[in-house]
């Protein structure tokens, strides 16, 4: 049902994004309706003007932060089939999620202000740290499934979910999901020590799009974990799409909860851990899966 998926996908992204923002507000001690108030406030707020911004690149940056998770989501199966079942779907997901690097750097650079620029470079550094283990985790899934197609990755988990026999890859994926959405412990690019980092100078509709893109990223990162590691729509009684939704909500809730339990990690420390610990672990996991498959 690709046509139905085309309608359901943006709807699911919006609803899950609002749910994540609501849960985050509740965990911060606020009310679950807080995101709606924030949206209303940002809609009527004036844009902030800085001295000599590069407006073209700013627009490109903010809009591509929303477009990247949307485009990444088209290969995630909602139940049985994704909107577009590309033969290189896993690589497509990876490519779109890397576009966030460009989006954040452009946003931080183009407002012509110090803190956003520092935040942007923090994110690029974080990206260089998380991307290699993340890619190895994705490759492990592709190796286990014998295919780069998302639906075939789901098919391959009919008997046993990948999370069971590649737990390290799943953990690495979750860490990189946090880093990808600059969320929780990996939120230094928008850290309060930088007065908001990349988004420091954004106000009004720009900030609304930025926040929406960030929550969409978090949702897509959680949603992709389901076909990649958690058996997609597999489960008893309930229909496939509902199982996919339930699992996505569970992963999303975990990611949001982590923000309130784990302190921020500096990206140079994270780089060290990532390259010296996570990459070797990912390679060992890849080796184990390779041996099992062959």
């Amino acid at each position: 049902m690709p046509e139905l998926g085309l309608l359901a996908l943006p709807l699911a992204l919006v609803v899950l994004g609002l749910a994540a923002a609501g849960l985050d507000a509740v965990l911060s001690g606020g009310r679950a309706s807080a995101p709606f108030g924030e949206i209303a406030r940002l809609l009527v707020q004036q844009r902030r003007r800085t001295t000599r911004p590069d407006v073209l690149l700013l627009r490109v940056g903010v809009i591509s932060l929303v477009a990247a998770p949307l485009l990444a989501a088209v290969v995630i199966p909602l139940g049985d089939a994704p909107v577009a079942d590309l033969s290189a779907g896993i690589v497509w997901f990876n490519a779109m999620e890397v576009c966030v690097w460009g989006a954040l750097w452009l946003t931080g650079w183009s407002v012509n202000s110090v803190f956003p620029l520092v935040g942007a470079y923090r994110f690029v550094a974080q990206g260089l740290a998380y991307e290699l283990p993340h890619m190895f985790a994705l490759i492990t899934v592709a190796l286990g499934a014998g295919s780069l197609r998302m639906s075939e990755a789901v098919q391959a988990q009919q008997g046993l979910w990948f999370v069971v026999w590649m737990p390290l890859a799943f953990l690495i994926y979750l860490v990189s999901a946090l880093a990808m959405a600059f969320w929780g412990p990996m939120s230094q690019p928008v850290g309060s020590d930088l007065a908001g980092g990349v988004r420091a100078e954004l106000a009004g509709p720009d900030r609304l799009l930025f926040q929406a893109g960030r929550y969409a990223l978090l949702v897509v990162a959680a949603g992709a974990a389901v076909p990649l590691f958690l058996g997609g729509g597999a489960g008893p009684v309930l229909p496939g799409w509902l199982w996919a939704l339930v699992k996505t909500v569970a992963v999303l809730a975990l990611l949001v909860w982590v923000r309130h339990r784990v302190p921020a990690v500096r990206m140079d420390r994270f780089t060290q851990v990532s390259w010296l610990v996570l990459i070797p672990l990912a390679l060992v996991q890849l080796l184990v899966v390779g041996i099992v498959v062959v």
Partner: peptide, 8 residues
Amino acid sequence: VMEMLVMA
């Protein structure tokens, strides 16, 4: 995309 950001 990654290469251009490495360029940055």
